[in-house]
């Protein structure tokens, strides 16, 4: 990707986000469900309801509401949460690091696991074991992350209670954080006991998110490795006396990495989307879990803020993937 292309992509970000804002804003208000109905006590008078509606600006037309909200959003004010009575911006900012740490951990596990499986699968190519590996990958692709979450929770939380199954950290642990990146902060400050507690809470949801993605990485990487190994340059490396593992690692892998990053990288967005249900199942305090509460409470400003956050993450991820592919492929670098 050359500079022109990068600039083009950056220029396209604001209109994309604007489109996302409009769609979310309008959809929320068109579908049935009313935030006011969620917050009033039984027996409230019609006048009370009208007053509340006016207080939150919900008595105005949708375009009018949008202009008000969008104007404020441009100055960094994303409104106040109706159900939590706090600034949406601060709420999201406080919860986002938890989701980022969880997703990063899940991605790490998935990439590691997927790579090992892909190499094993290619190494036993043409033998019965390859069928077993392909079949295994298929099974893991077919089972969604939230189902893994339930399975893991029942298995390691209830049946063999090895690991904590709720929250991000033990409440009795005496520690104050200065950032919301708990894991990174505890590692940087050398609080290994805290890091270990965090990891224990993180491992089950991370594995649940990682398993389907690992299968995806394994499938794409294995196919790419197989294809690259059949290319002339890899065959010729054999005729130059290199061993098969050396060829797979040094000649084949750098080539197979390009389609794998291009295809698999954008699928991290699926993993991010998966945090919504998985965080809920493990009561993990990230933005995914928050999104479910926001939807249940019809908390319009919070939902808008959260979806905008996801949209920004997705766009950033796609851009990062394209940049990485350019770095990996010299043919793209020189155009």
């Amino acid at each position: 990707m050359r500079w022109g292309e990068i600039i083009r992509r950056l220029v396209l970000i604001p209109p994309t986000l604007f489109g996302v804002c409009i769609i979310v804003f309008v959809l929320l208000r068109v579908v049935p469900g009313d935030p006011i109905a969620m917050m009033i006590p039984p027996g409230a008078s019609a006048a009370d309801i009208d007053r509340l509606r006016a207080f939150y600006g919900l008595d105005q037309s949708i375009p009018q509401q949008f202009i008000t909200w969008f104007g404020q959003a441009l100055s960094g004010n994303f409104g106040r949460s109706i159900s939590l009575h706090q600034s949406v911006f601060e709420l999201v900012l406080a919860r986002l690091p938890a989701t980022l740490e969880l997703s990063a951990m899940a991605t790490l596990i998935a990439v590691g696991l997927g790579t090992v499986v892909a190499f094993t699968g290619v190494y036993v190519r043409g033998r019965g074991a390859e069928w077993a590996i392909d079949g295994g990958i298929g099974v893991f692709l077919a089972i969604p992350d939230f189902l893994w979450a339930l399975i893991l929770l029942l298995l390691f939380g209830v049946l063999i209670p090895l690991l904590p199954i709720t929250g991000r950290i033990d409440p009795q642990l005496d520690v104050t954080f200065h950032t919301n990146f708990y894991l990174i902060e505890s590692l940087l400050t050398g609080r290994l006991d805290v890091a270990s507690a965090l990891l224990q809470h993180m491992i089950l949801p991370a594995v649940a998110l990682a398993l389907p993605f690992a299968a995806l990485v394994a499938r794409i990487l294995k196919a790419s490795l197989s294809e690259a190994e059949d290319q002339d340059y890899a065959q010729i490396a054999r005729a130059r006396g290199f061993s098969r593992p050396a060829i797979l690692l040094r000649e084949v892998f750098p080539n197979a990495l390009i389609p794998t990053v291009a295809l698999g990288g954008v699928q991290i967005t699926l993993l991010l989307g998966g945090t919504v249900l998985v965080e809920r199942i493990f009561s993990y305090e990230g933005i995914g879990n928050m999104a479910i509460d926001a939807v249940i409470n019809r908390d319009f400003p919070l939902i808008q803020g959260l979806i905008l956050t996801f949209a920004i993450l997705f766009i950033a991820l796609n851009l990062a993937v394209d940049l990485l592919v350019t770095l990996l492929d010299p043919r793209l670098r020189h155009g």
């Binding site: 340059y233 006396g241 290199f242």
Partner: peptide, 23 residues
Amino acid sequence: RSLLGRRIALIPQDPMTSLNPVK
């Protein structure tokens, strides 16, 4: 393997596909 590439060498057919494109 210690003979291949050292004592016995190959000049391949297609120069366009016989070099590793990313190295």
